[in-house]
Computed example of a mutant assay.
Amino acid sequence: MITIFQPEKVNINGKLRLQAKFEAAGMKNVLWYETDEKYAPYLTSERVDAFLVGLIWLGLKTGQNIIVKGLLSEKLFYGLNHHLIPLIAQLYKYKTIQIQCDNLVSTPLPNEGAVGTGLSCGIDSLSTVYEHLGKSVPEHYQITHFTFFNTGSNQMMGSKQWQEKIFQERVEWAKACAAELGKELIVVDSNINEVLKMSFVKTHTLRNISALLVFQKLFRVYYYSAGYHVLQAKFNQDSASYDAISLPLLSTENVNFYSAGSSFTRVQKTKMVSDFEISYKYLNVCLFKTKNCGRCLKCKRTLLTLDILGSIEKYKNVFNLNAFYKIKDSYINEVLASRNNDPLFKDIYEEMVRRNYLKKRNDT
């Protein structure tokens, strides 16, 4: 049995931390989320929501039911128990677990009505920003704040020292981009990666949504950038493959989550980003560096797409284009060989055909 207690606010070396104690298999621990003190009015110590969502994977991994000793949003309780937990359990062959709580509440908390999205500066992220610019987006659905959560994506490789360095570099990169867009960037650190000790790819949706639920008195709408086109998505080890189902089930009486960009393919998103001038300065897709290496999985996929679109030279200041050009031909051959097995490669290949890219390449 996992027991989660009511959250509390704590000051740690000039930072504000929202934390909740929990017990699992007789062991006591603390899950925490840390941010700037100026966001103190918005940290939601009145609900256990964020910590429950953050610890669901621990319950599933260990097969333990979860008891909430505090106030919990009724809408979230229903969505988790009756829909999302049974779905995840079936997908990954886990024993299903139950949430237990005697203090369900359906009354919304005071809320500033903010609209947020993550700003990693990747293709999914910047296409979400681009999609929500302009008059076609209603006033109360236009982005007011950006977020950057340290919930595990920066701890996927390397030493702890390297992980901290890349996190700080990416924060500064995102801050600069947010400033040019005229929006605040809310940065959140957390120990959730140490608590879960699980694959980030498999668990990222719940990790990041848990961090956002810390701010239920600030946000009313949050766009979680889709990793898959909804028509191409097949359930797999990436939690993004079922975001279109899971995100509405993680909404509460205070905040609604949307799978932003799920109706677009990756090529379509890349085209959107290539029309977004700020991306020429801030696009960051690299697995290893803030200035994109040009050779890693994400770099070469993005650069080949940009080359097909005729936009690659716009990104000469943020990518190592020479590194990409050295491997470009072999990567094209890889895409051609695997296009029937990989929907992302199929998407790229179809764009090659539409733009007569292969013939033009052979002619040169």
Rank of each mutant, 00 (worst) to 15 (best):
C286H: 07
C121D: 09
L71K: 14
L283A: 05
N154T: 04
C177G: 00
F5E: 09
I245N: 05
T270Q: 11
D124C: 07
R361G: 04
Q216L: 06
G182V: 10
Q237V: 14
A240L: 09
I56T: 15
G122S: 10
N320T: 09
T302K: 03
D329L: 08
V267W: 01
V68H: 05
G14T: 05
K21F: 08
T205Q: 05
L181K: 04
C177S: 02
H229C: 14
S210W: 02
Y130M: 08
S279Y: 05
E334P: 03
K234Y: 00
L58N: 05
S330P: 03
Y78A: 05
K93S: 11
S251E: 03
M27N: 12
D124M: 07
K202S: 12
F319Y: 08
N322C: 06
N11H: 11
R361L: 15
A89T: 13
K269Q: 15
M272Q: 12
Q163K: 03
E253D: 09
P248L: 10
R361P: 00
A50R: 01
N284V: 04
N254I: 06
K69E: 15
F257S: 08
I67C: 06
G310V: 10
N322Y: 06
T44W: 04
I312L: 12
K93F: 01
H82N: 15
T270Y: 09
V214K: 08
C286W: 07
I209K: 02
K300E: 05
R170T: 11
K175G: 04
K69L: 12
W173N: 09
F77P: 04
S259P: 00
E74T: 07
E350Y: 13
Y42I: 08
M198P: 02
P86S: 13
T252V: 04
I99H: 11
S262W: 02
Q155C: 11
S125D: 07
Y92P: 03
H82G: 12
N111A: 04
L80T: 08
F235H: 15
